[in-house]
């Protein structure tokens, strides 16, 4: 019995497309945040911890206040605080930002698990849905076209960031700070201030990415909610070669890859599911191999990141 609701194998494509639109959102925000941070010449490896902290905060605040938007703001605020903390620590003499970032993963996830304990069970008010598929009879296509407001906002942020890097004085200064901090300093640009601001805003974006996990899809708080997405998004920035627009595209690719395993099995293609389930991770590896080169350094890498080898 084939119902009119079913799309058969076409359903795989619809599911992957839908998965790309739903599942890409944490990647979009974390990779944009990381892109901003790295443009200033700093690395924030703590994004995984900040993502979890954002996810937990958004859920808790939405649950307590009844307003998912307040949850979203709180997640951005807490993310920003973490960014500020990391930026402050790394500006101290002799602190390695990679080590500090790893400490942030452990601190952020530990704190999120600690405070998240009382919020595991209940549901929290969820973000509204923007329905682009109104009037479409097929349930699968309709579901794929129900878009999160965070997705629309994410696209806007990517373009805004691209514009800021290319066309504004602040963006030029930030790139100068990242490419050649000494030259920037001699020009009178406040290197430290640019780095602190970039790291803080970058972490706030990751906090927003976390709120998507608990306030939209899947829409629960669980300690396994991030599943390493914060770390993969950091790798994604390298693949996207520090361009916000390419970050956006790469995030969509990862979101789609995440949906590949489940949607193939749902359509009845059940072999090798471990391989398909691992596709986002495999994709990360393949892209890293493809994007490395023996002869030239990575295009677009901020100079101060390239030089420390």
């Amino acid at each position: 019995m084939q119902s009119s609701d079913s799309l058969g194998n076409l359903g795989i494509l619809v599911a992957i497309a839908g998965g790309a639109l739903r599942g890409s959102i944490p990647y979009i925000y974390v990779s944009l945040g990381e892109c901003l941070t790295e443009k200033s010449g700093r690395i924030n490896l703590g994004m995984e911890g900040i993502l979890l902290m954002g996810a937990m905060t958004a859920f808790a605040v939405s649950d307590q206040s009844g307003s998912p938007w307040l949850g979203l703001l709180a997640a951005a605020f807490v993310g920003g605080l973490f960014g500020l903390l990391l930026a402050g620590i790394t500006e101290l003499p002799g602190v390695n930002d990679v080590a500090a970032g790893i400490a942030m993963i452990i601190f952020g996830s530990g704190l999120a698990f600690f405070f998240g304990k009382q919020f595991v069970a209940p549901m929290a008010p969820q973000l509204p849905v923007i329905d682009f598929g109104q009037g479409i009879a097929n349930a699968g296509v309709h579901a794929a076209l129900r878009i999160s407001p965070l997705f629309v906002l994410g696209i806007a942020v990517a373009f805004l960031m691209h514009f800021a890097f290319e066309r504004t004085r602040w963006g030029l200064h930030l790139r100068a700070v990242g490419d050649a901090p000494d030259a920037a300093r001699s020009m009178g640009i406040a290197v430290r201030r640019h780095r602190v601001v970039a790291t803080t805003i970058g972490a706030a974006l990751a906090g927003i990415g976390g709120s998507h996990l608990t306030l939209y899809f899947p829409g629960i708080w669980s300690e396994g909610i991030s599943g390493g997405q914060g770390l993969m998004a950091v790798a994604l920035v390298i693949f996207a070669r520090w361009s916000p627009l390419r970050c956006l595209a790469a995030s969509l690719l990862f979101g789609g890859a995440q949906a590949l395993g489940p949607s193939l099995q749902s359509a009845g293609i059940s072999g090798f599911y471990h391989v398909f389930n691992a596709s986002p991770y495999l994709l990360t590896l393949v892209l890293m191999v493809l994007s490395c080169s023996r002869t030239r350094r990575l295009d677009g890498i901020p100079g101060s990141l390239a030089r420390r080898g």
């Binding site: 579901a143 899809f217 899947p218 599943g227 395993g261 389930n277």
Partner: peptide
């Protein structure tokens, strides 16, 4: 949770 949700949707 994310993969379970993806599978449920599919």
């Amino acid at each position: 949770p994310v993969r379970e949700a993806e599978a449920s949707s599919s």
